[in-house]
Design a protein around this nucleic acid. Sequence first.
DNA 1: CCTCCGTGTTGATCCGTGTCAACAAGCAAT
DNA 2: ATTGCTTGTTGACACGGATCAACACGGAGG
Lengths: 253, 253
Amino acid sequence: MENLKAHFDPHGRPSPIANDGDRETFCSTCAFSHACVVEGYGKGDLEELQCLIEHVGPFQPGEFVFRTGDPFRAIYAVRSGMVKTVLVDADGQEQVLGFYLPGEVVGLNAIYPERYPCDAVALETTEFCRFSFPAMSALATRLPSVQQHLFKLLSKELGTASLLAGDHTADERMAAFLLDLGERYATRGFSRSEFRLSMSRGDIANYLRLAAETVSRVLGRFRKQGLVDIDGRRVTLLDTDGLYQLARNVLNR
Amino acid sequence: MENLKAHFDPHGRPSPIANDGDRETFCSTCAFSHACVVEGYGKGDLEELQCLIEHVGPFQPGEFVFRTGDPFRAIYAVRSGMVKTVLVDADGQEQVLGFYLPGEVVGLNAIYPERYPCDAVALETTEFCRFSFPAMSALATRLPSVQQHLFKLLSKELGTASLLAGDHTADERMAAFLLDLGERYATRGFSRSEFRLSMSRGDIANYLRLAAETVSRVLGRFRKQGLVDIDGRRVTLLDTDGLYQLARNVLNR
DNA sequence: CCTCCGTGTTGATCCGTGTCAACAAGCAAT
DNA sequence: ATTGCTTGTTGACACGGATCAACACGGAGG
């Protein structure tokens, strides 16, 4: 079967690094394909989508996927690994906006300003599906399901953004963070209660608007209380009910 | 000329309260029409939009426009007045998510959950354009400019959501809040430096994640320092440079 | 006139978390 | 093994803002 890219890449960009096959199997190895299917893309839609996707990466830990101010051309779905998005303010102070797991999409906040308003940095070896945004929004005018999905992604991210906005104690934030991560891992088919924290304590602290020392202390306390087990960056949630009790005002739904 | 609604209201809802005319003048008295034009809607697009718009209101101060859990059917553009959106958590604690001026759009965060995740409460006598969302997203598949606008609105709100997420001092938050309000008033054609705070000190405090007492104190200090003049709810920004200096880490762009 | 009530201001005190500092553990380079 | 660097943990202390409380102001209603 012929190579898709040879005929369909609308931008004439260099060949993607991980083009794993023909129309039928292109997305089969992609962590996002599951999301595509879950989100209601049919086989036909998927074939259309392939025309505007490049598989890019792998990026090594610490590598930038895009940088603040880069012109916005594409959104990135994580295939494997993990990324953080970081806003850098006038004083050079960093502000972690979010962590993105396989199947999740980075770059949506760049649509309005037409430039990426933040850096995206790989936390592990990470691969992406890169969706050309002009092509995708053009496609969205033809395929309502694609448009719906984009609206949902944006609206969903709005919800999680306002999640961290509340003023909550360090314990509440941390409990919510752990449960949220577990939840997201679970929807991707991983264990809900046992996973690795790809990001440093400093990144967690920054994301939760706490000091790194506070993160350490809270995690230590959670361990003593039997809420979690922690070995370095490996976490096991032992008492999800207890954690949920702490987090309910943060996660409220 | 015939009454639009008689023929075009796709939902057969009760007549809008403020239907001010025919195809050519329907939007002329609407605060949002300016936004429509600015956002690149041509005359043709506007005519199409009219088919899915109802003018609703006025709502009196304290009245709910929609409530948490209501099924999502429409987004609301403020025509006149002001609204706040409020999230109520498990303990009944309120959390103000935002204030919306004429020309701004409420309800976008309801797309994903398909229910409004927050209450919308009028702060003054307030009127809206109500956009049926199913109709609007259908229209968006035909008119790329409408789709673009929706994407932009969503992405823009993502940006402002992460604005408040940072950990900032009370002074920084307040300065940023005042400048942001001035900026938004300015884009709607009002004075950038002199306006009325429609919301109570308590609402401001809640929005900024501060105590009402802190808001009082900071505003008092700003007044003493000559940064602003304050008389009850009337505010005049006197030293915008000074305010901007304080706010630059919050507003960073 | 008065009281009542919501809103806003101001003062005194307390608590959670940040900051500073010292130290331990893991890991790469020499 | 040694050095140096990064990451994480733990303790002592300080500070910003929350909390509690008292009070001022203005409008509504008797």
